[in-house]
């Protein structure tokens, strides 16, 4: 596979926390634009993988390359720059700043990236169907709405890779489907890649490929071959 087509490449990637091995010798290649779902039970190593891909943690073995950058040799500030330029993150608990409005939460991500553009931030929220809730604070929004604000914040800086850690974990069925449809649409428009961590088999079916992890090892790697209608 040509290197320009690869968004993620790990070689013998491992992470240990003292005596505990969270991830073992992972060789993984993900193509640009792919939607990779990572499944596994708690402690299987899926969140560790997500953190390593997002430059939020450092490997103890092997290498990890994202968007052509080897993250192993980067300093803390270089990793921060990598995150703001290449990565969008969606959390299960949303992690919106409670005293900022939906619009300000998105603008904060712009501020961290470069310059604030309110029109663009407003546009991002309108794209995720939150144009009518711009001035509401997170506490005034439902879980699904908060997650949509979180998605708008994640895509505002046009990332190359979107990392989603159990993005539908706290949502009901309707909201889950809405969020996943939104991700599918945005990926089609923006062309970013997605790595999504979930416990849910139905959610996994929305991706192009699913890897199953257990005890820090990839035990299964399936091409799903399409998203459900």
């Amino acid at each position: 596979m040509e290197e320009t087509q690869v968004i993620i490449r790990t070689e013998q990637l491992g992470r240990r926390y003292g005596a505990i091995t969270a991830l073992t010798s992972l060789d993984l290649v993900v193509e640009k634009g792919d939607w990779l779902t990572v499944m596994g039970h708690s402690g299987s190593g899926k969140s560790t993988l997500l953190n390593l891909l997002g430059g939020l943690d450092r490997p103890t073995e092997g290498t990890v390359q994202v968007a052509g950058q080897d993250l192993s040799g980067l300093s803390e500030n270089e990793l921060a720059r990598f995150r703001r330029e290449q990565i969008g993150i969606i959390f299960q608990q949303h992690h919106l700043i409670p005293y900022l409005t939906a619009l300000e939460n998105v603008m904060m991500a712009q501020y961290i990236h470069s310059v604030v553009d309110e029109v663009e931030a407003r546009g991002a929220l309108e794209r995720v169907g939150m144009g009518h809730r711009l001035r509401n604070r997170p506490g005034e929004l439902s879980g699904g709405e908060q997650q949509r604000v979180c998605i708008a914040r994640a895509i505002i800086n046009s990332p190359a890779l979107l990392l989603a850690d159990e993005p539908t974990g706290n949502l009901d069925g309707g909201a889950t489907r809405m969020v996943l449809e939104l991700l599918r649409e945005l990926r089609a428009e923006e062309g970013f890649s997605i790595v999504l961590v979930t416990h849910n088999q139905e959610v996994a079916a929305w991706g192009d490929r699913t890897i199953q992890m257990d005890d820090g090892l990839v035990i299964r790697d399936d091409l799903v071959g399409g998203t459900p209608a």
Binding site: E76, N77, A80, R81, R83, R84, H95, A109, I112, H113
Partner: peptide
């Protein structure tokens, strides 16, 4: 959590 979030979103030490 706020500071951690900003760091996760890419804020560096200076910011």
């Amino acid at each position: 959590a706020e500071i951690a979030l900003m760091k996760a979103l890419g804020a560096d030490s200076y910011q």
